[in-house]
Computed example of a mutant assay.
Amino acid sequence: MRLPFLRHAMLPLFAALLLSACHGKDEASQAGGSTPQAALQGSIDLIKAADFNGLWKHALPPADYANLRADWSRQQKDVKPMSAEDRARFDQTIQKLTEAGAEDKLYAELQPRLSGMEQQYKDQLPVLISVGEALVKNGIAQSKGLSNVQKTQADSVLDVLVPWAQHTPWFDQAKARQAVGVAVTTARKLGLKSPDQMRSMDFDTTMAKYSTGFTGLKQLLAIYGLSVDDTLNSIKLTPVSSSNGHAVVRVDYTLLGKPLSVESKLVQQDGRWYSEDMLDNARQSHQRLVQAQSLPTASASAAQASSNPVTKD
């Protein structure tokens, strides 16, 4: 994602994926929710529909959503040119994924590699995944952008995902063929013809592409036994507290058959409820971008002043 906020907000967004309640779906079409539970339910309805533009519009107050869209346009002007090497790699990848007979060609190319990798890494893979887990957990612990609660939540999710990753048959030929089919279908639906097209898309178009990519990702995960929809359908939500414009909601859910729980903080703005973490991240990201873009102007003004000293009569 181009906006730092969108990258930084993925943990709160993942938490939003795990929230559900018994409120009407009309909340999803409005900014925020009439209650903390309704705000979270609206986000879930939009995630289930893979409507990412609608998600940001619902998850942020109108002014902050407008800033998000404006910041996207501002950053488009600062995109660095792609190197010839990266451009060639992009073109080659898109051609392989979208050409006629791509499924058969890619699987024929992948099949011997899978057999070789299975012989070489089958016994080592659980250990390698454990090493990766340690590195990720260390990164989470050292992160300055995550609260202690968020770090605990991330660790709990990893504790479930790591055993799944260690025991998943990644080298299974039949599953690999299914995965290739999903990748090819998704690439064709994305309809990306060039890196310039990808880098020049406006906010609405990009969110639509994210929707297509998200749907493909869910299908890939399901092939290997991780159903996002099953997790969403397992959610139970319980209000914990609400006073002075702040609320806490407890969320119980099942991930890969393991019960987990999180607590989500919400804040009331102009009578509507929003995720406190997501709102804070959005505003901090906007402020950083505004400050970063004001630096060149300030530097230019200072340089001009120094080159034109004031003379006294």
Rank of each mutant, 00 (worst) to 15 (best):
30 Q>N: 14
32 G>Y: 05
32 G>F: 03
33 G>E: 09
33 G>D: 06
33 G>T: 03
34 S>G: 13
35 T>M: 01
35 T>G: 02
35 T>V: 04
36 P>H: 06
36 P>K: 06
37 Q>R: 11
38 A>I: 01
38 A>L: 00
39 A>I: 03
40 L>G: 13
40 L>M: 11
41 Q>W: 09
41 Q>R: 12
41 Q>E: 14
41 Q>K: 14
42 G>I: 02
42 G>V: 05
42 G>K: 01
42 G>Y: 03
43 S>Y: 07
43 S>W: 06
44 I>Y: 15
44 I>M: 15
45 D>F: 08
46 L>M: 04
47 I>N: 01
48 K>F: 02
48 K>T: 11
48 K>R: 15
50 A>R: 15
50 A>V: 09
51 D>Y: 05
52 F>W: 14
52 F>G: 08
53 N>Q: 15
55 L>M: 07
55 L>G: 00
55 L>K: 00
55 L>R: 01
56 W>Q: 02
57 K>Y: 02
58 H>F: 01
59 A>C: 04
62 P>E: 12
62 P>M: 03
62 P>C: 05
63 A>R: 15
63 A>I: 14
63 A>G: 07
64 D>R: 11
65 Y>Q: 00
65 Y>N: 10
66 A>G: 07
67 N>C: 08
68 L>P: 00
68 L>H: 07
69 R>F: 03
70 A>Q: 07
70 A>S: 10
71 D>E: 13
72 W>V: 05
72 W>F: 12
73 S>N: 08
73 S>Y: 05
74 R>W: 04
74 R>C: 02
74 R>G: 00
75 Q>E: 15
75 Q>I: 10
76 Q>F: 03
76 Q>V: 08
76 Q>N: 15
77 K>F: 12
77 K>W: 08
78 D>W: 09
78 D>N: 15
79 V>C: 05
79 V>Q: 12
80 K>H: 13
80 K>Q: 15
81 P>Q: 04
81 P>M: 11
81 P>F: 03
82 M>W: 10
83 S>Y: 03
83 S>I: 02
84 A>K: 10
84 A>V: 06
84 A>F: 03
85 E>S: 12
87 R>Y: 03
87 R>P: 02
87 R>V: 05
87 R>Q: 12
88 A>W: 12
89 R>H: 11
89 R>E: 14
90 F>C: 06
92 Q>P: 02
92 Q>V: 06
94 I>N: 11
94 I>T: 07
94 I>V: 13
95 Q>D: 09
96 K>N: 13
96 K>V: 00
96 K>C: 02
98 T>F: 04
99 E>Y: 08
99 E>A: 13
99 E>S: 09
100 A>W: 00
102 A>L: 06
102 A>F: 07
103 E>H: 03
103 E>Y: 02
103 E>T: 06
105 K>G: 09
105 K>D: 09
106 L>S: 11
106 L>C: 11
106 L>Q: 14
107 Y>R: 08
108 A>L: 08
109 E>M: 07
111 Q>W: 00
112 P>I: 03
112 P>Q: 09
113 R>P: 06
113 R>S: 06
114 L>W: 10
